[in-house]
Amino acid sequence: MNRRITATALALACAVALAACGSDSDDSDSSDSGNGSGDGATRTVETAMGPVEVPENPQRVVVLDTAELDTVITLGVVPVGAVQADATQEFLDYLPADQLADIEVVGNIAAPNLETIDRLDPDLIIGSKVRDEERYDELSAIAPTVFSETVGAPWKENFLMHAEALGKSDEAEEVVAAYEAHAAEVTEALGGAEAAADIEVTMLRFIEGGNTRLYGRDNYIGSILTDIGVGRPAITDEATDGFAVEISPEQIDQADADVIYYASYGDPEASGEQGAVGGPLWEDLTAVQEDRAFPVNDQLWYLGIGYTAAHQILDEITETLT
């Protein structure tokens, strides 16, 4: 699908390019062994685990979740190691392949391989307490480790913390501003705030090995929909902790809305997507009857949890709804 290139998307690209240019010499050293920002200078970052001293200019970064991978790439930093999601066994497929090619796999989410991480000799590890609290001491013995409290809903706050740890706070401000401008563009493209609010959007995710989810507001994709001001169906308010409502295949009618975006975590056959989509209950949904049910990339819409993903999502929303 060809995406509309917006001015704000170009602004993000410029911000990332500036970040990369500002660290060209750093990148050239990133394959060298040994921790180091060169002069040994450090600064303190406030994290979910307390204050952490990090290198002023970290060179060898390991990330322990998909959101953190989106973050570092967005800020022009290519990590030496990263985890993968269980169901994908690959890095995020919407990120530039050339920037992912030399990243070493260091395990799966919430199951990092500490020996591999140690061998990579990082000078900064970025992750979250909710995923790896029990491994924090071991990780900290390898390198300064910066954890956010949790993942998903607080993705914007996490981004700023991780940017601070990377020494990229100025670049992060540019990224945030570009996203906010892009979101405002999408609202206008939908006819303005009032028109956008009249469009009810369901986020439907089929889960291999789990129940199907109707996503609420307190998560990554929910926050993006809030930022552009679209409406959500009433069932959204029943989401547990604001996160999601879990349904069975026989309850797919509860996904009814003006628009449905749907994806599968894992194999579509094993997740239940193939059995549900096209079935009699599916065909009765308003969005389906009006040709406004759209399959989307699970890695982009649900796993990326970052600003590079967010820009691409905003472009896809504009394409499908205008």
Results as ranks from 00 to 15, higher is better:
Thr74Ala: 13
Ile199Met: 01
Tyr262Pro: 06
Trp155Met: 11
Glu90His: 14
Ala276Val: 14
Pro79His: 08
Glu246Pro: 01
Ile5Gly: 03
Met1Gln: 14
Leu190Pro: 00
Glu238Arg: 12
Asn297Cys: 11
Ala48Val: 03
Ala172Leu: 06
Ala11Cys: 09
Thr47Asp: 04
Asp118Gln: 15
Thr8Glu: 15
Asp121Lys: 14
Thr71Trp: 04
Gly192Ala: 03
Thr212His: 02
Ala310Glu: 05
Pro122Leu: 12
Phe159Asp: 02
Asp118Met: 15
Asp102Ser: 15
Arg217His: 04
Asp198Ser: 05
Leu100Glu: 13
Glu250Gly: 09
Asp29Phe: 08
Asp253Thr: 13
Ala244Gly: 01
Asn211Thr: 04
Glu180Gln: 12
Ile117Gln: 04
His162Lys: 15
Ala177Phe: 03
Ala183Met: 02
Gly210Thr: 00
Thr66Glu: 14
Ala189Thr: 05
Ala189Trp: 00
Ser169Cys: 03
Arg60Glu: 05
Val146His: 05
Leu120Arg: 14
Gly279Arg: 08
Glu250Lys: 09
Asn211Gln: 07
Thr286Lys: 15
Asn297Arg: 13
Tyr136Gly: 08
Ala309Val: 02
Val186Ile: 14
Glu53Lys: 13
Glu56Val: 04
Ala15Tyr: 03
Val230Tyr: 01
Leu100His: 13
Gly81Asp: 07
Ile5Ala: 13
Ala196Ile: 00
Leu95Arg: 06
Glu250Ser: 13
Ser31Lys: 11
Gly304Lys: 06
Leu10Met: 13
Thr42Trp: 05
Val175Pro: 04
Ile5Asn: 12
Thr42Ser: 11
Gly304Asp: 02
Asp24Pro: 01
Ile5Tyr: 08
Ala234Trp: 01
Glu180Trp: 00
Gln299Leu: 08
Gly34Ser: 12
Thr88Tyr: 12
Arg292Gln: 14
Ser31Cys: 09
Ala287Gln: 09
Glu208Met: 02
Val176Arg: 05
Ala309Ile: 03
Val61Ala: 06
Ala143Thr: 08
Thr202Leu: 00
Thr74Asn: 11
Ala239Val: 11
Thr212Met: 11
Glu171Met: 06
Val176Ala: 01
Pro58Leu: 05
Val83Met: 07
Asn57Ile: 05
Leu190Tyr: 00
Val201Arg: 01
Val80Phe: 05
Leu69Asp: 02
Glu200Asp: 12
Ser264Asp: 07
Ala193Arg: 00
Gly38Trp: 06
Asn113Ser: 15
Asn35Val: 10
Asn2Cys: 07
Asp26Gln: 10
Leu314Gly: 02
Ala287Tyr: 10
Gly22His: 05
Ala270Leu: 15
Ala153Asp: 14
Val77Gly: 02
Pro280Glu: 13
His311Leu: 10
Gln299His: 09
Thr308Gly: 13
Asn35Cys: 11
Asp267Val: 11
Glu238Lys: 11
Glu319Ser: 12
Ser148His: 07
Glu56Trp: 08
Ala234His: 04
Gly22Ser: 09
Gln89Leu: 11
Asp253Lys: 11
Ala183Leu: 03
Glu319Thr: 07
Leu18Ala: 13
Ile126Trp: 04
Asp284Phe: 04
